[in-house]
Nucleic acid binder design. Structure first.
Lengths: 239, 239
DNA sequence: TCTGAAACTTAGACTAGTCTAATCTTTGCC
DNA sequence: GGCAAAGATTAGACTAGTCTAAGTTTCAGA
């Protein structure tokens, strides 16, 4: 008589939200996201991903082709875009209204995006004048879950010759953050991909304008989220 | 060689934070908090509380006297006050900066208090001018974990004759929220305790100024957080 | 002082999420 | 075309947190 039925549409857990976001970023051009890449991005072991993938495809958020990878369903994509909208609005709000700098804002938004309500996000968006782009020119998905394309690519996916601006460092592991900082790999830095080894080997990049080279293993490269910089380098395209 | 050691001071989980807050509120006058009261306040079953109590006393956050109840240690109290500071600053920020009304603010703060960083709270506090009292006159703990006394009491603890202002409804269960609203028991309402049955029986109250009576069972009364109203009724004491 | 009801704890099961170790697929290369 | 290595999955264990059912302890009142 009372609610013993399984909840038809349970709220997504924090973990599920993180997986959906990672899969969205990794399968951006309509392809499949690989288990090991998801694992590297979320800093969990590959079997953890296999387990979660099973649960997510049972609930209809992703499609899984064993040994191939996963793709978001329409429902999963909607959920992922919702998280991305939250993340970008939070980043914008924290920098513009609370004096954060772009260095510290990512980790904070990463936590808050799981806790805020839709109402709060829309109030923040309103305060900011319902922005359509974040300060780096990336589009913010609408509340209805639509987004203009032109997304972040992880350094591990970028082609040789690409000119990139480092935007986000997708880890909170202090040792790694320290390492990246030592290498001069902090958000805002410009770089060019000069070489990529096969077999998921390291990517070689050159910092711009200094030209200093860096070699970044695939696992670390997956944590470095970049925007492809158009040929003319300043400002953002005025859509 | 690498970090296999148990983390000496692991971060508190969301659940632990909620237990500490509940215990703080229930043992306010230096007494013990009872298992069943914690259970009612957090809307979990009593054995869940016993289990958590065991973990919390092993980590030194509370003292447990079996069959008696629990008390916060200094460390536990510090953690609880930190959460209460977060909660009150969030409520203040959401109402003053983002146009929330006092009805909707509690649930939002309840989620956010687990996700915000210390830095964000201090930035919000700074924006608000480092307030010492919330809009109802309750003191906000300092960042160092000090608080002026005069706290919220649950309706279940208030003495007969007490004049109270309902401040928070400590549940998110829609059915209960609807019930309370139907009874006119929403934050801000004034009431007097007219009777209390023994054996953990119901509390009878009268709404002020209408005088309408209400009978509230102990389990529900534990969810109604009130401020004791001084004889002169308006404004808050200007400490 | 005894006793029964209320309150508390223990026992045991379940879920979500994580891990390591072992096994199975796929694929690039000779 | 076969094979080794990379990558993916399965197997099995663990933790935190929850629950219900069953047993203990406490204490108010007769």
């Amino acid at each position: 008589m009372h609610a013993t039925l399984r909840d038809a549409n349970p709220p997504l857990t924090r973990s599920v939200e993180d997986y959906l976001k990672a899969i969205y970023h990794l399968s951006n051009q309509g392809g499949f996201a690989a288990t090991s890449d998801i694992a590297a991005m979320l800093e969990v072991a590959p079997p953890s991903v296999s387990g979660m993938v099973k649960r997510l495809s049972e609930t209809g958020l992703i499609e899984h082709v064993p040994y191939r990878g996963v793709q978001l369903t329409a429902q999963g994509r909607r959920a992922a875009l919702k998280m991305i909208r939250r993340h970008r609005i939070l980043e914008l709000y924290l920098t513009q209204q609370l004096g954060y700098d772009w260095g510290g804002v990512h980790a904070e938004a990463e936590q808050l995006e799981h806790a805020v309500s839709d109402e709060l996000i829309e109030r923040m968006a309103g305060t900011l004048g319902n922005p359509q782009y974040d300060p780096h020119g990336d589009p913010i998905p609408t509340a209805a879950g639509e987004i203009e394309e032109a997304e972040l690519v992880s350094l591990a996916e970028a082609g040789v010759g690409a000119k990139l601006e480092l935007r986000q460092v997708g880890t909170q592991d202090p040792a790694r953050l320290r390492y990246f900082a030592e290498q001069g790999l902090t958000p805002g830095v410009l770089l060019t991909v000069t070489d990529r080894q096969p077999f998921n080997g390291p990517t070689t990049i050159a910092l711009v304008p200094s030209g200093d080279p860096r070699v970044v293993g695939r696992e670390l490269a997956l944590l470095l989220w970049c925007r492809e910089v158009p040929v003319e380098q300043h400002g953002h395209a005025s859509h």
